[in-house]
């Protein structure tokens, strides 16, 4: 639908969908934002830790670990979703433990959609954090050591602040990517309206129904808008923080 990209029409549709979205469509938007927020909220700290380990630690099996982390980026999302089913399914090794011990079920739930999003965007966040960690002059950490700062002190007061532009950009780009996750989510969490039906899934569902193109177009506009906002924000914040950090 390339004609949708024509500007006046876009503005028309944009103002249109803000007023014309049905309650269940709003629900999809809300759900998408919530799922992405949870995915980034849990994924980002892990991504920072992983990036730190990958840049600062040398250990046997590091290449394998790195490959594992980056796997979702190259694997077909359906395969990632299927792997998640195997591992986190009610009969999977981790899924069973979660279910038996905590009564938590991830498959076909909102939490599961967040997990799928988190796994899919994890490499993107790790990559962004890692790049900014690698850009930090190692001499600064040496200087901090001679000034009496232990490893945690250095991490909190020197390394993370200096890497913060990369961490924030990673979070925003990760968030924006979460909004568009499809394959892994539909495979692992299914397409349940109100629970796991995020925007892309809702668009897909709308396109499956005869006469659903208008609805799909509206939702696509929302998706497009969110993506553009995310990217512009990431760029602006990245630049801004770099200045604040004295680069």
């Amino acid at each position: 639908m390339p004609e949708l990209l024509v500007c006046p029409l876009y503005i028309h549709l944009y103002t249109g969908c803000m007023t014309m979205l049905s309650p269940e469509e709003w629900e999809a938007v809300r759900l998408t934002l919530a799922v992405a927020a949870r995915a980034v909220g849990f994924g980002l700290p892990l991504a920072v830790l992983t990036a730190w380990v990958l840049t600062r630690c040398r250990f046997p099996g590091r290449p394998l670990f790195s490959a594992l982390v980056h796997l979702p980026m190259v694997l077909p999302p359906v395969v990632t979703g299927w792997l998640l089913l195997i591992v986190f399914g009610v009969r999977g090794p981790i899924g069973m433990l979660l279910h038996d011990w905590f009564g938590v079920r991830l498959v076909f739930t909102t939490a599961g959609a967040s997990l799928a999003c988190a796994v899919m965007t994890f490499p993107i966040m790790v990559r962004s954090v890692r790049l900014s960690l690698e850009a930090i002059d190692g001499g600064l950490e040496q200087a901090a050591r001679t000034l009496g700062a232990g490893w945690f002190d250095r991490l909190v007061n020197v390394t993370l602040p200096l890497a913060s532009p990369g961490i924030l950009v990673g979070a925003i780009v990760g968030y924006a990517t979460c909004l568009g996750e499809f394959g892994a989510v539909i495979t692992f969490a299914a397409n349940i309206p109100g629970q796991t039906q995020t925007l892309p899934l809702a668009i897909y569902a709308a396109l499956q129904v005869p006469g659903g193109e208008a609805k799909a177009a509206e939702l696509s506009m929302v998706s497009l808008t969110l993506a553009v906002i995310g990217l512009v924000l990431a760029d602006w914040i990245g630049k801004r923080l770099n200045t604040v950090m004295g680069r």
């Binding site: 002059d137 040496q142 200087a143 050591r145 001679t146 009496g148 700062a149 602040p161 004295g246 680069r247």
Partner: peptide, 28 residues
Amino acid sequence: PEQRRAGMVFQDSRLFPHMSVATNLRFG
């Protein structure tokens, strides 16, 4: 190094770019 109390001045100063001069001075 963090337990030696050996102050070091490097050729390339290595001031923390995200801190003011005063904060840098007070770091150690």
